[in-house]
Amino acid sequence: MSENRPAALSISQRTYLSKRVRWETIGGWLFVLPALLMYTVFVILPLILTILYSFYRWNGIGPMTWVGLKNYATVFEVPDLLGTIFNAFWLVVWFSFIPVGLGLVVASVIHRVATGRLGAIARTVLFLPQVIPLVAAGIIWGWLLALPGLINQILNAVGLGAFTRAWLGDFDFALPAVGLIGIWVLLGFCTVLLLTGMTKVDPALYESARIDGAGWLQEFLAITVPLLRYEIGVCLTVTVIAALAAFDIVYVSTAGGPGNSTSVPGIQIYVLAFTQRAVGLASALAVMLMVLVVLVIIPIQWLSREGIS
């Protein structure tokens, strides 16, 4: 490294510079230290411990027994455990694709049509689910989707009585019903984020497009979507993680039932670690989930950043 430095640099200058650089480095580290400490204690350490635990059979209190990769093998051998990962991917459609797609449409409609008070009301209503405690929301959705619930009452009233069912207790419809709750929660977040992005787009671009005779759809496809690539990336990242690592929405609505049809890794990790006290097996599933999330998120990040530079 040092041979690359300009030869003209005198020794004193060098020491002065390196001293200053060192002080800046130390100062910088001091600023970062509190956050770094928190991050280390609450994120990095648990992460490393989880990886460590995944190689042991351990009940959380007693002695630990080294089992190597056996816990990972168990996850692949037990269909109910592996099945949770497939359910999580199925949830991505409901928690991620639909809210982001719908969010784009809703945001562009609000941006174009309802800029005034109506827009503010629409934003607030859509964002409200983010503010309501999810447990309360889960109970309300439980009532709405129950056999005697409002949704079935409406279906009966409009003559679609044949379609009524206990949505959260039905093998075919429980996951979509959970997905519906996910859409309700995440649509507002996506809409508000995308709308903020749209307001940053130079209005001149839209104006010139309109002068050229572009319709709403052309504007949407040619200007909005490409320029919101980064915001869409953020939305996808957050919602995909919400889907793959889902716990709360599923726990408060179905707890994984009926018959594991809505069971996701988050629920299984919780039950394995805290009810079954199979900490090693729970950790193995958690590590696999983490790797999976990273594998899915990296391409999204890569795609959304590409072209921004």
Partner: peptide, 22 residues
């Protein structure tokens, strides 16, 4: 019988029986 046989065994299996899956 075990700490999670209800959550991991009986509950999903009986639900499947209700749903005609088992």
């Amino acid at each position: 019988s075990t700490s999670s046989i209800f959550a991991q065994g009986w509950t999903p299996a009986l639900q499947k029986m209700v749903g005609g899956k088992e």
